[in-house]
């Protein structure tokens, strides 16, 4: 529990020690606004990373749980071929269920592209059969061969042709968002470190006096580290809060099922943005402490 006490002592501070270094100068505002801006961007990068990850999972796992059999060919053979394909599917081990989509369901699938008034009956649209595999899966190659024998106009589609590139894209986007997050955090660390160095250099006289009367480097560094950590925490808290509210008010994914409108968090994922100020504070603590101890040796 010693670390917990040290943690609380750090945030509680020491009024006498805190007052030694005057709280003034442009670095205070610089650090606050930089932390707020970086945290705002970081929450967005995090939201994109989370959404991309969610999308990749959906495309790679949930959609892998369903396959489609497409029955094409002459219109007068369509129903017979569909029935034959359904018979094959019903007798295939590892297929939980198979059913032909109704004309209305097929119209619903096409309406986002062609509108609601599409005369589906007059178009040469193939019949789709939705196949839900059982948990243990089925022998896809065997099914293809059997379909070729029993229903030659039926094609098996496991969606991999369009799913795999999308999954790769989603994973790439997630890596890009994560890399952006790392860069944002590194930039925040650099800004806080520069601010701390400027503040230390600007308080050279104070530091010299403190060293002469017996202050250890750790004591002097703590005054600066605490100040910059709290400034960063406050700034990052404000930035993260504004970003979280903004993300919350983005159009929801459920409404349109589109990726661009699906950026956000779900469930416990909403706790992630709240972690951002703490992460920024930790980074500020490490960056300021390193900069302060190094600069103190150079200054005095």
């Amino acid at each position: 529990m010693a670390w917990l006490r040290a943690f609380f002592d750090f945030f509680a501070g020491d009024l006498r020690a805190d007052g030694i270094v005057p709280a003034r100068g442009h670095t205070a505002w610089l650090v606050f606004f930089a932390a707020a801006t970086m945290a705002f961007l970081a929450v967005f990068a995090l939201a994109i990373a989370v959404a991309a990850g969610r999308l990749a999972n959906t495309w790679s796992q949930e959609m892998a749980q369903s396959v489609t059999v497409i029955v094409d060919g002459p219109q007068d053979q369509r129903q017979a071929q569909t029935d034959a394909a359904l018979r094959v599917l019903e007798t295939t081990e590892g297929v939980a269920s198979a059913r032909a989509l109704t004309p209305q369901e097929q119209r619903d699938l096409l309406s986002p592209w062609f509108g609601d008034e599409i005369p589906i009956e007059n178009l040469a649209i193939p019949q789709l059969i939705e196949v839900i595999p059982a948990p243990q899966g089925f022998d896809a190659e065997g099914l293809v061969l059997r379909l070729q024998g029993e229903a030659p106009n039926a094609r098996f589609d496991d969606h991999s042709a369009w799913r795999d590139p999308l999954v790769r894209s989603a994973r790439g986007l997630r890596i890009l968002a994560a890399a952006s997050l790392v860069l944002i955090l590194a930039t925040a660390a650099a800004i806080v470190s520069l601010g701390a160095k400027a503040s230390l250099a600007g308080n050279f006289k104070t530091i010299s006096v403190l060293r002469r009367i017996g202050a250890k480097d750790a004591f002097i560094a703590k005054v600066f580290v605490r100040r910059f950590t709290l400034r960063t925490l406050t700034g990052a808290g404000a930035g993260a809060l504004i970003a979280t509210i903004t993300v919350a008010f983005l159009p929801s994914a459920a409404a349109t099922a589109g990726f661009l409108t699906g950026i956000g968090f779900t469930g416990l994922g909403w706790l992630l943005p709240l972690m951002m100020p703490l992460l920024f504070a930790l980074i500020a603590f490490a960056a300021t402490r390193t900069a302060a101890l190094r600069l103190l040796q150079e200054l005095t």
Binding site: R212, I213, G214
Partner: peptide, 13 residues
């Protein structure tokens, strides 16, 4: 540097 700091607590300047 810490020992120097402790030394200076024994010296009034």
């Amino acid at each position: 540097r810490d020992q120097v700091a402790l030394l200076r607590r024994r010296v009034g300047l």
